[in-house]
Design a protein around this nucleic acid. Structure first.
Lengths: 127, 127
DNA sequence: TAACTGTATTAGTTATAATAGTACACTTGA
DNA sequence: TCAAGTGTACTATTATAACTAATACAGTTA
């Protein structure tokens, strides 16, 4: 399904969370699509099932997936409700990142280009 | 100088790095301006001097400050040279963040507004 | 020279990440 | 019904990282 970097220093469970987050946000995984079981994915990645469980729990906390005992874990529907707190947080993150981007030399035009590309594609599928 | 959140889970030295990074990028601290000494800041924040040292070392690695034995630590000049690797990295980060922003419900217009605000102010001073 | 600066080293404590093994409750399909 | 697969919970153990602490050394400045 994907690869892990065991030497990156980044916790394995975080890497798993990030991968799924990316797949879900980009709608590579569709709503109600089943994720690999805890044990199955653990075997594939040759890591401990508890590590997968921790990742799935985190994804559930972020409301990206839902889990049903005995059945499995599934991709959540994209929330129709906008969380004002999340929105505000993202705006602040955006400001920070844009400021830093300008600092390291990304030009205003490059930024506009990146932004318009994404906005016109509606944020769907591949980057 | 600023406050720490000792319960945030985020390492103290990272918080310090982030604060200074913000101050430097936003040019609140000017080129060659002196940072508080390791011991002084440690006393102000009532934490260990080694933690400050770790933060300063990290800032030096990121080329945001330079340190001179016996004199102190100072804000680096903004690099005139553009690092293509950093630029590419920032563009990718920007894509990721924008995709996530759209996902949580930040509208395209809000994004454009945030972007234009920053671009027109040249990324200077306060957010 | 005294007082300040950054830097280095060693040690110890605490918290987190990850592994390992086991157990329980639920769902599904043969 | 029941076996196999599912999520979940718990305890224990090891390894690593973060942080504190104390001390020492080297350079700068007035």
């Amino acid at each position: 399904m994907f690869e892990l970097d065991l030497r990156s220093g980044k916790p394995i469970y975080e890497q798993i969370v990030d991968k799924f987050k990316e797949l879900i946000i980009n709608q590579v995984l569709e709503t109600d699509e089943k994720l690999p079981s805890v044990r199955e994915l653990a075997q594939q990645l040759t890591i401990n099932p508890n590590t997968i469980q921790k990742a799935y729990r985190e994804l559930e906390n972020q409301e990206l997936i839902y889990s049903v005992k005995g059945r499995g874990s599934f991709v959540n529907a994209i929330s129709a409700q906008v969380d004002p707190q999340k929105v505000k947080h993202m705006q602040e993150e955006l400001k920070k990142l844009l400021t830093e981007a300008l600092f390291v030399g990304v030009t205003a035009d490059e930024i506009r280009s990146v932004v318009e590309n994404l906005l016109q594609n509606g944020g769907g599928s591949d980057a």
